[in-house]
Every structure is written in C-alpha cells, then in structure tokens.
Design a protein around this nucleic acid. Structure first.
Length: 450
DNA sequence: GGGCCACCCCTA
DNA sequence: AGGGGTGGCC
C-alpha cells in the first residue's frame, strides 16, 4: 500500500511496535510535547492508516513536528523566520535528532520478546502495550522536570513545566495548530537554561506560579549548577557549561552518576534514578515510586512497605534490585512498559482509543473486554489457559460501544485485567523470584541518600 | 542512622 | 485525606 505523506513532511519507515508516540509522549517521561488531534478526512480508503495526531516539541533552534501511521513516522522541523539555512541539511539534522531521542537503534520488539520469555507477567500484557520505549532526553530538562514530580501528577507537572518555559525562556517562534481552522498562533518556547533559573528571585516567582516547595528546589539546583560550572558568553545559541557537564554523566557508571545527582536540592533516590534512566543512558535502573512499589507487591509478590507506608531506602533498594533481576539489562525499559500499562490515563490503551477507530493496523490486538470484578481477584486463582473470566461490571463488560463507557470504568477494567494476569503468573509459580538473589547488590556507598 | 513530619497545591 | 518525594530534625 502506498504511503501517503502529509505535505511538508518526510517519511521514515517505522513499525508502531517499535515506537508508539501516542503512548510514549504522554506516559510521564517528557512533559513538554504538545499534542494536536488531526481532522481525519471522512471517506477515503486510506483513512484507517492516516495519522490521527500531530506531536510538537520545541528544541533550542527548531520545532520538531511528528505524525505517525502504523508503519511510518512522519517528521518535519520548523524554524524562526528570517533564519537562513539549507532545508535539506536541516531535515537530516532533525532525523539524526529523532534517531537519538527515540533511541531507534535499540530493537524494542526484540526486547519485548526477551522480557516475555522470562517474565509471564510481561508476556500477558505485551500485546496491549506496544511500542513503549525509553526516550533519551536532555539531562537538565529531565532533572528540573522530575524535581517538579514529587507529590505530583502528570497533568500538573505538565502545566508547571509549561509555565516554566513560558516564564524563563523567550518564544522561539509562533505556530498555528496543524489542522486549525482557527488561525490562532501559539508561542513555542525551548526549555530554559540553568542560568535563567538560577537567579535568586526565581524562587519567589515560581512560588507565585504555584510550584509550592519545589520552587526553592529548582532555583537552588540551577544555582548549584551555575555556581559549579559557570555560564557561556553567548547563552542563547548553545548549551551552558553545566548542561554539558550533566551530559558527561552519561560516561560515568551508574553509581557515580547517581552520587552526583543526589547532591542537588530536591533530588532524592527516586528522582535521581529517573534522570539516570531517562537521560543518562542507565537503562537497567528502576525508579521506585509508590506506584512501582504497588506493582511489585501486588503483581510480583514482593514484600510490601513496612509499618508506616513510607518507603525506606532499604525497601527501595530491595524492590529496585529484584525488578532489575526479573528484567535484566534493560530493566528500566521494561519497568516503563509495566508502569505505563498501569497508568490511569492509559486504561483504554490497546482496547480502543476514543478518538481512533479500531483498525487492522494492530492485528492481534483483539480488544479485550474480559474483566473480573475486584472481588473476584481477591485470593481466587484465575483460569490459566484463557482470559480472566468475565464478570459483571457497572457499565457492562461486554459492551462494544466504548464511547459509552466512562473513563473510570475503563481504568478499573484495565487494572483488573492486569491484576488477574499477574495473579495467574504467581499462582503458576512462573515468576522466578530467586533470580533476585543472583543480582549483585550495589555498592554500599551508592545506597546512602546523603 | 533509621524513622517521623512538614512542605505546596490539587483532586477525591 | 492523600498523592509519581525530599530535607531537616530527632
């Protein structure tokens, strides 16, 4: 079938199983992508393979625009007016950026195969959560964004990062929405530089913007970076020395890089591990938040939090290393798939998306309407050979009309499915927990949180 | 040196 | 009341 390339875009052949923008760009890795629904022309035979969304990210010198069909990634980049440049070379640069940012040299399908072979829990959910891979983000942006993430949720973090960019970095250019009949142009801001966040007044300003106690963390961390590494002569055009220094942490080993990150204000073990995994190439690292903790205890049978419900460093290390043992070298990547599958906003992912009709583009992704009530899963082993037995749900578990389901119902459904899947695996005894013991403990020095 | 508690703001 | 934690204090 001929690929229909949107005007102005370049085409890169790429199976959706290798990368799902819809999943990856809003699963809590990056908080800065703009997402626009596209108007799908009504009665074309190719309708079902046309992209449904456009995704945009403002880099330092350009805005990257992406669209995706089941087998192709479409890309283009837009520049401020008046800047001269060889368009062909620019697209080549953008392609290089894409390959790096999405780490396309890593064969995700092969990783899914390996995780499925060793982890029955993963095996059961893999088909529903295709194409979830780790981004290779800018370390400074990643660090600041995840300082914002404590006691927080994705939508609020997204708003905070947005106002951070609007307030502390000038707009690179203005663009109208892709399918907009409305011609309202919106500004696109790059992520702010360390020096622009380091000024003393930033702390109070961020507080006024609703950052809460994180306001001080951000200003102090930025100030620490600038203090230690200085500022450029021409800060607008290139990255600052401290940003370059953060990049060099990619060349250090995990423990050494983590120690450096833990020095910054507002950065504890969890945030440090997020940065290690998401921008410093430490692919085996598993950040343990309360959510992952729950997955570990409920689905993998690990021991839960001790008395107080708060996560002790000891427990953190235990959960993290055991999950690393389950998933191996790319454990952090696998964790991301499980984590995303359990995200509330992804409750309907793989079943059907409200805005996207079910298509042949995802063969084998049979919409799974099987579900069990939460009572069913409590202590009752589900049948091993088939789907969890269907139970009655509020909105009707076998209802094809997904539009009539509330988001809440879909959330519940997916959570219940996941739960059943894991209980299967546990009752089958196919989760090899003893693997955990083979994993060498990290050096003591790296365990201490300052 | 492990264990509490406040922190700031939003949603339930 | 508690959340996709952390820093400061016992």
């Amino acid at each position: 079938m001929a690929v229909r390339v949107p005007a102005g875009f370049q085409a890169l052949p790429l199976p959706i199983a290798q990368l799902s923008l819809a999943a990856v760009l809003k699963c809590g890795q990056s908080f800065r992508w703009s997402i626009f629904p596209l108007q799908i022309s009504g009665n074309t035979p190719l309708q079902h393979v046309d992209p449904t969304h456009e995704y945009r990210l403002c880099l330092r010198d350009r805005v990257v625009c992406l669209r995706q069909s089941p087998d192709t990634l479409f890309y283009r980049s837009l520049f401020p007016t008046g800047v001269l440049g060889d368009q062909e070379q620019r697209e080549a640069e953008t392609l290089a950026w894409i390959r790096d940012y999405f780490q396309l040299d890593i064969d995700l399908v092969n990783l899914y195969r390996q995780w499925s072979a060793t982890d029955p829990v993963f095996n059961r959910i893999q088909d529903r959560f295709e194409g979830i891979r780790m981004l290779r983000q800018d370390p400074f942006e990643n660090l600041i964004s995840f300082i914002c993430s404590s006691n927080n949720n994705i939508s609020r973090i997204t708003k905070m990062v947005g106002s951070l960019c609007r307030t502390y970095s000038p707009a690179l250019l203005h663009l109208a929405p892709p399918a907009g009949s409305d011609l309202v142009e919106e500004p696109y801001h790059p992520f702010p530089s360390p020096s622009s966040l380091a000024a003393p007044e930033v702390s109070a300003q961020l507080r006024a913007l609703g950052f809460g106690y994180r306001a001080d963390f951000i200003q102090k961390t930025a100030a620490m970076l600038v203090e230690a590494h200085g500022v450029n002569r021409s800060p607008k055009t290139s990255s600052e020395p401290s940003e370059e220094w953060l990049m060099t942490l990619r060349d250090k080993d995990t423990a050494a890089a983590r120690t450096e990150l833990l020095n910054f204000m507002g950065v504890g073990r969890k945030v440090a591990d997020c940065v290690l995994l998401m921008s410093l190439d430490k692919r085996e690292v598993i950040p343990v938040d309360t959510h992952v903790q729950q997955i570990a205890t409920k689905y993998y049978g690990f021991r839960g939090p001790t008395k107080t419900g708060t996560m002790s460093p000891k427990l953190y290390e235990e959960v993290s290393s055991k999950l690393t043992a389950v998933w191996g070298d790319y454990a952090g990547w696998a964790h991301s798939v499980l984590f995303t599958s359990d995200l509330k906003s992804f409750a309907s992912y793989g079943l059907a998306s409200p805005s996207t009709p079910s298509t042949p583009s995802t063969p084998g992704l049979t919409p799974d309407r099987h579900s069990a009530s939460s009572q069913d899963t409590a202590g009752i082993a589900t049948p091993r050979d088939s789907m969890p037995k269907s139970g009655k749900r509020k909105r009707g578990g076998s209802n094809r009309s997904l539009e009539t389901k509330t988001r809440e119902a879909e959330i519940e459904e997916t959570l219940v499915q996941l739960e059943a899947v894991v209980e299967d695996a546990i009752s089958e005894g196919t989760v090899d927990l003893s693997l955990a013991d083979r994993v060498k403990r990290r050096r003591r020095g790296t365990l201490s949180t300052r």
